[in-house]
Every structure is written in C-alpha cells, then in structure tokens.
Nucleic acid binder design. Sequence first.
DNA 1: GCAAAAGTGTTCTTGGTACACCCATGG
DNA 2: CCATGGGTGTACCAAGAACACTTTTGC
Lengths: 233, 233
Amino acid sequence: MSTGTGREHETLRLAVDLVVLTVREHALQVLLIHRGNQPFLGQPALPGGFLRRHEDLAGAAVRELGEETGLDGSMLHLEQFAAYSDPGRDPRGRVVSVAHLAIMPDLPLPIAGSDARDAGWLPVTRVRGTLAFDHDRILDDAVEHARARLEHTTLATAFCAAEFTIGDLRDVYEVVWGVTLDPRNFSRKVMHTDGFVEPTGAKRIPAVGRPAALYRAGAAIVLNPPILRSSAT
Amino acid sequence: MSTGTGREHETLRLAVDLVVLTVREHALQVLLIHRGNQPFLGQPALPGGFLRRHEDLAGAAVRELGEETGLDGSMLHLEQFAAYSDPGRDPRGRVVSVAHLAIMPDLPLPIAGSDARDAGWLPVTRVRGTLAFDHDRILDDAVEHARARLEHTTLATAFCAAEFTIGDLRDVYEVVWGVTLDPRNFSRKVMHTDGFVEPTGAKRIPAVGRPAALYRAGAAIVLNPPILRSSAT
DNA sequence: GCAAAAGTGTTCTTGGTACACCCATGG
DNA sequence: CCATGGGTGTACCAAGAACACTTTTGC
C-alpha cells in the first residue's frame, strides 16, 4: 500500500452489484431490473450502482437497492462475496464491482421509486445466459455462495418471514439446494442445533393437515454441527 | 449499475492488500513489510498497493508482491477474501482495499527489490495489534478464512513444498488450527480422500525414525468429505 | 373416518475417535 | 536392541439415513 503512480488509476470507478434472492412459488428467484440505458438497453441486470464519497460498500448496496427497487435494505441479510475486476467487464470504462448477496423473505415488491417500475423477481433457472455485463457469472457465484452458506450458517432463516414453520425452513433448503430432504430427520436436526430457531408458542393452522409450531430465528449465526448437502436423500 | 453521479467518486482509489501466510518453525507466519513513508512510518504492514489501469485484482496482487518482497507470485495460491471500505480507513484519502489471502511453502525470501529489504516473516501471534491501517483486522479475517478453507479444500497442500509427507501436511493443520491431531487417523483421512494427495513413490529419510512416503498435491480442490476442526483431539 | 401434514421412536449404517500394535530406519 | 516417527487393524461411539408409526387438524 505504498506505490501509487498518480494518473494510473484515476478513471477507475467502484460499483456494488446486488444479488437479491428469495424463495417464491417453490423456486429460487432473483431480483432483476431492466436496463433503461445503453449498453445492454432493455436487458435484465442485477441492481447496483456506484459507491459515493462518504459511503462504505454496505451503505451503497442498501441505498442502491432502495433507489432501484423500492426495497428497504436495512432489514435484509447482506454480505459481500466477491469483487469483479476484469478491465473489459464494462464497455463504458473501467468499473470494478464488489458483489453482494442479499437474502429476503417472499415479500411483495413496493413499486415505489421511478427506477423501480422495471424491477421484478425471476426464477434463477430461467435467467441463465440472459443478463447484462458479467452478471450471469456473478449470479452463478452468488447462488453457489448461498448454497454453501446454508450448510454452515443460519442463513436459511433470512429467507423466512419473522415467524415460520420447520416446513418453511425445509422448503428453503430443498429449493436452494435442489434436493428433497426427509422432513422428520430435518426437524430433529434443526431443533437439536442450539440457537438456530426458537419456538414462539404459536401454531399455524393449514388448510388441511396437522398445525405446525411456529418459530423465529435464533441467536446463532454459525451452525454447529453443520447441515451438509450430502445429507440429501 | 446505472446512476453514477459524476464527481461523487472520482477521488476513490482501489488497492489490494496481501496476507501471505506460511508455516515456519512450527508456527503460522505472515509476510510483513515495514512502512517507509508516512502515515504509520516504520510500523509493520501488509504488502499491497494500488490497482493500475489495465490490471485486474489478481494481477495487481502478484505485481505488488514482487515489487515489495521480491517473491514470484505466479506460483502461489491466491484468492480474494474481503473488501474493506470504511471511508476513514486510510488517513491519506479514500482507499477501498480488496484483501487477498496468499499461501506459500516455507521458502527463503529473495532479498531482491529495493522495497523488499524490509520484508520478513513474523508469527501471527506476535503481530496482533501492531499493524498499520486496519491491517490487524484484515489479518484476523484472513487467518479465520484460511482455517475454514482447510476444512473444505485442499488449501493445506499450498503450504507444503512440491513433495511432502503426510506428517508435513498434518503439521499444517496443527499449526494453523492450533490443535494436535492423531497422526494415524489423519493419515487415513487424507489418503481415503480422492485427489487430495498422490504418492510420488519416493521416500524421505529422516535423521531418526522410519522413512515417510512422499506425496504431491492431487487434482482435487474441494475436500469430500471435509476434514472438520471438531475432529481435533 | 379419511386425507394431509407434523412430529416421535427405532433400527441400521457410516464415519470419527482412541489406541494397541507392527514397520523401518539410525545410532 | 532401542529410540523415533510412519503406518495398519480394530473396538467403540455418535451422528445421519430410512422408515414404521402416532398426532392433530379440516372436511
């Protein structure tokens, strides 16, 4: 961190890109905008934008999410997972982007800001190969990152509403991993992991079937023991 | 990635910082330089520097490593693990840094370049709290990242020379995790994991004791099954 | 009572741990 | 033949997988 060479780097701009994931209609879906400018006019792209002078990366991510989609980013799970720095990745000039993974429960999109009109959810399996810039690659990396995180952290609760059933949580694992899990063994695994979920005492009565106990996210962040993907049936 | 606001971001500079780790003298050691300029003059710091116009992050990391320490970065394991963007992290102005973890075998430092004179290895346990900028935090994050990587990837082989014994590999785990492992169970775990190591056929004759078979790194990158830290005695 | 989903108990299997034991070398 | 570290066999134990079975509701 000593030898900067003046004009060598002044034209570089730093961006954040957001991969906002949720589970909707039993599918893993990603929040995309449609580009209103060249390049890639009209193509779907990840929300994102440039870092401002007094902002850190997380701040920029939350701000851009609000501006482009109308979502309140202060409540969602947000973590950076990679930086993309290929000099040719943006035809407008040199842009390095720090990509962030954001996880949300399935909430209606508040069609608020002007930019937000073109924001919407799409299943990740349907958008592969269609995104602007290098966003296909970023999306792939994000999904793999999320899959790995489910094994070792309580990230799955970030996909759920404030109160959820063990079945809801299992759906998250099944949809994100693309597997089916044994409901009975999954139940026990979750409830025997300290701090993963805590009971609220309430129950949810479904249209048909036995009511399920409701839980909220526990205090734990890392799962010990982990819930490994090889546990799949 | 749409709303840049002109002068809002022109003064931002993008840096790479390197946390180069090795196992030396049965301790986890980090490669540090001594700063030759203000701020933090004379204090130890991580090697690093600013991204240039036609360079990607990995390229900048390798170049800076060569300039500041004389090491050939083309051979070592290199991966980015976090970006640091606190607006106040560098007193000289706005600098966002993408931190990289680099892993090397225990090789002599080629005291080559002019800047390299002050580069040297220090045990990570001895430098906590002494580094310039936010490099203490970056070092902590890097070490934790490396510890986690040992569980799930073949990163440990990057700490070893081209040919190594199972005992060498076990030393890496013991030193990085700060535990002791059962040599016999460790042996089996490594050799039953496809692609972790492959035998060279040669043996290393120690000063005393039975000769150990030599291995080189295998083709695998992810460990299946993982070698979990809870496996410690 | 029947369908559907939640949740429990139990067996089987697998992978980890501990450790007795044998192997190969130099002194 | 002893010290030292490399490596195998095996008994034990805990966690996961598979699955029969019970519970709780709406219709």
